[in-house]
Nucleic acid binder design. Sequence first.
DNA 1: AAAATTAATTCGGCAAACGAACTATCATTC
DNA 2: GAATGATAGTTCGTTTGCCGAATTAATTTT
Lengths: 157, 157
Amino acid sequence: MENRTQESLIALRRILRASDHHAKALSRRTGLTTPQWIVLQILGEVGETTPKEIAARARISQATVTALLDKLQSRGLTQRTRGQTDRRQVWITLTDSGRATMASAPDALQQMFAVKFEALPDWQQAMLVASLEHVASLLNAAEIDAAPLLDSAAIDH
Amino acid sequence: MENRTQESLIALRRILRASDHHAKALSRRTGLTTPQWIVLQILGEVGETTPKEIAARARISQATVTALLDKLQSRGLTQRTRGQTDRRQVWITLTDSGRATMASAPDALQQMFAVKFEALPDWQQAMLVASLEHVASLLNAAEIDAAPLLDSAAIDH
DNA sequence: AAAATTAATTCGGCAAACGAACTATCATTC
DNA sequence: GAATGATAGTTCGTTTGCCGAATTAATTTT
């Protein structure tokens, strides 16, 4: 493996570590766990949605989503409503209290990052965005390419 | 928040998601859980070390490290040795079997990423490395800056 | 109307993670 | 050099996350 590949992987790990650390700190501060926080964020982004959709976005099973929603609901942060056209569905919404919780816990790391990012000269911002998107696409492509390998390896066992 | 800041944060999330997804796939494949795998990786990097050091690097509590090491040791992947100069310490090392396990589970995603990365023209590799390191430094700086905010917010509660 | 599908939940079980309490070992200090 | 304090690691009890399998209820297909 070449030198620059190593360097890029190391930088990636630093990025992962920083965001992991931040997620844990945020959890401690809000009294919510990281997965619970992620569910709230999803609700904040998309508004009303279903457990199935949440599971897909958070990449966890539906059973786990049910458990998380039980917790959040018991704290009065979210609520369930039966679907009217399709009564199998359950629509999840943030309560006022849930919105307030999110508002009172602004994402400090993202905000600080935004401040520092926006202080950069225009050309550099553009370059960073392009680079990040490029790396993300490389990783996604790698993930897809690697999937069959992983499957065949699993069969071998 | 500006448009490009949004774009960079979205790209960052895509990167996080890809690596998270990969970590889970790797766990399933090796029969080890992600935290267990992380401990093995740390041991592979630094060689002999103590539970305290592992806890610091993985950013988990010492109690959790003890539990993880119990699991790894019961599978014969790691071993404990009492410290000689300071008998309170316990030195953790990979066994041959542990090293073999790591060797037999190459990091497919990293390798695919490496292949794709190394196929890029020279100038682009250089740009991506610089960008990733820049972003990592922004995030680390943001993390440090955000820390006092988080603390004071915690006190307010 | 029967069969298949779909959405969500319940249940059982394992792993992770933490704080608090505890043991054993240094290190200080009086 | 005995008492006190600090440190490294473990144990214990509890909460949480997570999943697969089975279940219930509603909808769609045949």
